[in-house]
Design a binder for these strands. Structure first.
Lengths: 205, 205
DNA sequence: CGTCATCCTGTACTTCGGTCCAATAGCGGC
DNA sequence: GCCGCTATTGGACCGAAGTACAGGATGACG
């Protein structure tokens, strides 16, 4: 049976105010996912201040790839919010937020919206207004890849399909996929389109 | 008598879908503010692509300092969104958005929240670590596409998957595919990766 | 010699992207 | 009123992309 709202935390605890907001909500511990076979529309992820964000979101993608993730921060901060949104979160708020606000967040995210804090938006807007230096020659993306991965990355960035990259480099399509998967993971991009954008924003000499 | 929702535009026009969302909404022209002495909770500001953002917001501050401003963009863009939020807007969406979405935006902003588009957030998150290239004079690719196709093309070029484009523009994934197919055919590209390369080689004003 | 990183490859699977068929509705021009 | 265009949407289908499992070969290094 599908659950609309699933509250996930280290202890599996569910706060009273969460139940006030969503009487039919369920709770789960992140490491006991096998016991919770539900597929919630909304996954509420309680995070402590020192949580390992990429690891948490990696686990969530493995088990609840379809769910929209809303972070409930024990100690809200813009840094943690940025990390969460960069990992695909769709909302970020205080874990002690009022039930009315939680319902509102749920409604917004269910409609495909994002719940972004005011101070976070202000911080992000400031970041765009500050002129950031252009990337240096030999930008960082090549430094985190092996030589062969760089070759595959360049070919993909130039618009080649996997079969074409395979032909160009004299390897099988399977090998191209293996390299591109490693490249995506190392550079923190989701697919070849975002890889191409990243590479063209950071040209190499 | 206070008006909860006031739609402000150059012509004072009010679209049918806005009335569907808010049957008791009022409309006003920006230059005829003296005739409209209402103090709306929410001020919906329709903006064209070439609107003078600081001037518009300056006028609004003079007459409706207490109102929360939600921008209805005729041609949504992250650049314009950034300018609006920097001027204090609390929401930014497409002026042809669905009534249900408009009501949702209203609810969020009334509760003190912000309505931020997904591509804008992605853009802002990237800006915290990368310099953004300045726009170049416009190129021909926009001339061969319809208005909606341009919006889809821009979203794709920015790295969005079909589902994300659908969320951003308030349409179904099926419609995104229909538009992107037409775009590929008109611009003579094979897929979204090559579309992105073409668009970034030919930036628009 | 054992370990590690790198490069290569396989099968298998799910999801995404893209295409082909179809349709309705609104709008503006003739 | 008709036509063409645009926008939107559906179902169905298939290939591509991406991921997960697995493994072998080679060279560098302690």
């Amino acid at each position: 049976m599908d659950t609309r709202n699933l509250f996930v935390s280290k202890s599996g605890e569910i706060l009273q105010r969460w139940l006030e907001a969503f009487p039919n909500a369920k709770a789960a511990r992140l490491d006991a996912v096998a016991a919770s076979a539900s597929h919630p529309d909304l996954l509420w992820l309680r995070l402590s201040a020192d949580a390992d964000i990429p690891a948490r979101f990696g686990e969530i993608r493995r088990h609840w790839a379809e769910s929209s993730v809303i972070v409930l921060a024990e100690v809200p901060s813009d840094d943690q919010a940025i990390a969460c949104f960069s990992q695909g979160a769709r909302g970020y708020c205080n874990c002690h937020a009022q039930p009315a606000l939680l319902r509102n967040v749920a409604e917004v995210v269910s409609q495909g919206g994002l719940w972004v804090g005011e101070s976070l938006l202000a911080r992000l807007l400031r970041a765009t207004s500050q002129a950031l230096p252009a990337s240096q020659p030999g930008a960082a993306w090549t430094q985190s890849l092996t030589e062969r991965e760089c070759q595959v990355a360049r070919a993909i960035a130039d618009g080649a399909a996997n079969k074409e990259v395979a032909r160009q480099l004299g390897i099988t399509e399977r090998t191209v996929k293996a390299h591109s998967g490693a490249i995506f993971q190392k550079l923190g991009v989701r697919d070849r389109l975002q890889l191409s954008l990243l590479i063209h924003r950071n040209p190499e000499h």
